[in-house]
Design a protein around this nucleic acid. Structure first.
Lengths: 167, 167
DNA sequence: GCATATATGTCAATATGACTGACATAAAAT
DNA sequence: ATTTTATGTCAGTCATATTGACATATATGC
């Protein structure tokens, strides 16, 4: 009996442990966004601006459509934050060379500076947590979170992982 | 030279790996909230209601002050969602026995049902990710995220962890 | 070349969840 | 008796999202 139960329910799948994992993700995400939020406030920006700056920084010359697909928001929602970032000189839009309808997005030098400021605050937090936890724990963190991400995002952002099978 | 550099910068602390960790957290958090959001929409509730239901469920007979301290929002913000949950019969407020100013919060039977519905969707996602990743990875996930959480939350929710030293 | 689809932008209205500031009441603590 | 604490509430604001409708320029298929 205990044998069957322990096979189907290893300790880490007990309700209490799953609930702990849920709270960990909630608190970690909240604390992880706190510092960038404070930096963004200096510029009159919010979290939405951060996301745009982050993904444009990581994918230079991406199109508006690609950005919409990653962010999963409506173009009307994107329009305001992106328009603000363009008007205030943090992002430039180049006309596409192949397809002239496209507006390829890129950070300007001030955009790069802001991106590095925002990301270095988060990288510092990660570097500390990673160092305290150790290389093996980091690998575990990656494995668990990759499994939590929907297949679509996982493939687009982190490359195909055929051994994963959920969502 | 390489020796010093590799000591100070193990692979998992390279900028590229830190950035990957940041994106993993962003996408995992987003996907992890997607299902509950859909359930909440049926009731006309949002994420704020979920958080209240979650913490009241885990800490029965908690006070409004305790809830405010965990959520880190203003009482005016809490007021609307909590008031809604009370009026619609998902949470009851008992007058405190020791201190009659306190309103001790508790889920009603319908509140418990909703709580279980919301949490089972998230527990399922965690159980799958945990199973795919394995026990060791789960331990790594916990270590990393506990290190990412500010000391205050860590102690209140997860118990003192003296070996951690950041934030 | 014409019709249709795509990439992008924009106007208007609405909802949620947060904020600040001010004030009120009841009960506990000193 | 005064002050502090726990809670609630009114009023106004902001950021970020939504839907729906419509416009423009360009690309693509027949």
């Amino acid at each position: 009996m205990t044998d069957i139960k322990s096979k189907c329910n290893p300790v880490f799948l007990r309700e209490e442990n799953l609930r702990e994992g849920i709270e960990l993700l909630y608190f970690a995400y909240r604390d992880f966004t706190a510092e960038p939020d404070a930096i963004l406030a200096e510029y009159g920006f919010g979290r939405a601006h951060h996301r745009v700056i982050h993904f444009v920084g990581r994918n230079p010359r991406m199109t508006v459509s690609e950005l919409l697909a990653i962010l999963k928001i409506t173009k009307q929602s994107l329009s305001r934050v992106l328009g603000q970032l363009v008007r205030e000189g943090f992002i430039v839009q180049h006309e596409g060379t192949e397809d002239r309808r496209q507006r390829l997005l890129e950070l300007t030098p001030p955009g790069v500076i802001l991106e590095r400021r925002l990301s270095s605050s988060q990288r510092k937090r990660f570097a500390e947590a990673y160092s305290n936890a150790g290389a093996e724990a980091v690998e575990g963190y990656r494995k668990v979170l990759i499994g939590m991400i929907s297949k679509e995002d996982r493939e687009r952002v982190f490359g195909p992982k055929p051994e994963q099978n959920n969502q």
